[in-house]
Simulated scan of single mutants.
Amino acid sequence: MANITTIERARKAFWFVALWMAGVGGAMLLALPFKLLIKAGAAIH
């Protein structure tokens, strides 16, 4: 019984970390075009 709860806890922790990393990665991908636009704007001026 204790083994099952440990596995469940590890599985929940894994999903939390996986979803958090996916969220951070998605935010970075969304920010990338804006970062490039800012760099391009700074290069023009």
Rank of each mutant, 00 (worst) to 15 (best):
P33M: 08
G25V: 01
L32V: 07
T5H: 06
G26E: 03
K35C: 04
T6W: 00
I7N: 01
E8T: 11
A40M: 14
K35N: 12
V24M: 07
H45M: 02
R9S: 14
A40R: 15
A22R: 03
A40F: 15
F16W: 02
V17L: 06
E8W: 13
F34S: 14
K12A: 11
E8M: 08
G41I: 12
F14V: 02
K39E: 11
M21K: 04
T5Q: 03
A18S: 03
A22E: 06
L29I: 13
K39T: 09
M21V: 15
I38L: 10
I7A: 15
W20H: 02
G25A: 15
G25R: 02
F34H: 04
A18W: 06
A40P: 00
W15G: 03
M21H: 11
L36H: 03
A2Q: 12
A2W: 04
F16A: 13
P33A: 09
A31R: 05
N3K: 07
W15Y: 13
A10E: 12
F16K: 08
H45C: 02
M28C: 09
A2V: 10
A42G: 08
W20Y: 09
A22S: 11
W20I: 14
F16G: 04
T6Q: 06
L30M: 13
E8F: 06
A18D: 09
L19H: 01
T6M: 06
R9G: 11
M28R: 03
L37R: 06
I7M: 10
M1G: 02
V24E: 02
N3E: 04
P33H: 03
A2L: 13
A22C: 09
E8D: 10
A18N: 04
I38C: 01
L32Q: 08
I4V: 14
K39H: 09
N3F: 14
M28V: 14
R9P: 05
M21N: 01
L37P: 01
I7S: 03
T5V: 05
N3H: 08
A31L: 14
A2H: 01
A40T: 04
G26N: 04
T6D: 05
L19W: 03
A31V: 11
A43C: 05
L29Q: 06
F14I: 08
A31W: 00
M1C: 06
A13D: 14
M28G: 13
M1D: 07
I44P: 00
V17I: 11
V24K: 10
A42K: 15
V24I: 15
G23H: 02
K12E: 07
A40V: 11
M21T: 12
W15E: 06
L30N: 08
E8R: 06
M28A: 00
V17T: 10
W15M: 11
R9M: 06
I38R: 15
I4L: 14
K12N: 09
G23R: 03
H45I: 15
L29H: 00
A27E: 00
L32I: 05
K39G: 09
R11V: 08
L30T: 12
F14D: 04
I44Y: 00
P33N: 05
A13R: 05
W20L: 15
K35T: 01
M1S: 04
K12W: 10
A42Q: 08
M1N: 02
G23L: 07
T6A: 07
